[in-house]
């Protein structure tokens, strides 16, 4: 089981990294979302994996999953929604304003940036 979760984290990271390195805003945003999944699952897994023992206190039950990473990841999920929304809005605003959804500075723009990009 641990192998499955760890490899899932690895694959999500790899996919996220690849998409983050693309040149247009939309795939980059999706890549960041994949990285968010990877990070959240990683943080969650720091409480180690427990099957069938949710941290809901019940009489007679002694073993519970670690509640702390769960609480931290819960807020992280909500915050990452807010972050994604802001990034999408910035990307969209840039596209609507310049009719260009490249992530990098484009050569016809600023002279100095153009020198660097070549």
């Amino acid at each position: 089981m641990e192998f499955l979760v760890a490899s899932a984290i690895g694959i999500l990271t790899a996919g996220g990294l690849y998409l983050t390195l693309r040149l247009r805003t939309f795939p980059v945003i999706l890549g960041i979302s994949l990285l968010t999944y990877a990070v959240n699952v990683f943080l969650f897994a720091s409480g180690r994996l427990t099957v069938g023992a949710p941290p809901i206190l019940t009489k007679g039950v002694e073993v519970y999953a670690d509640p702390l990473p769960q609480a931290l990841v819960l807020t992280a999920i909500v915050i990452s929604f807010g972050m994604t929304a802001v990034v999408v809005m910035i990307g969209l605003g840039a596209f609507l304003g310049a009719d260009d959804d490249h992530v990098d500075d484009q050569p016809e723009g600023d002279d100095k940036a153009a020198e660097g990009a070549q």
């Binding site: 984290i9 690895g10 990271t13 790899a14 690849y18 390195l21």
Partner: peptide
């Protein structure tokens, strides 16, 4: 190039989380 970066990054997080989860 990007794929290699991604694969190395993925392997790194895999190795880290795998080792992590098997230890208290």
């Amino acid at each position: 190039r990007d794929a290699s970066i991604a694969i190395f990054g993925g392997l790194a997080t895999f190795a880290l989380s795998y080792h992590y989860m098997l230890r208290d």
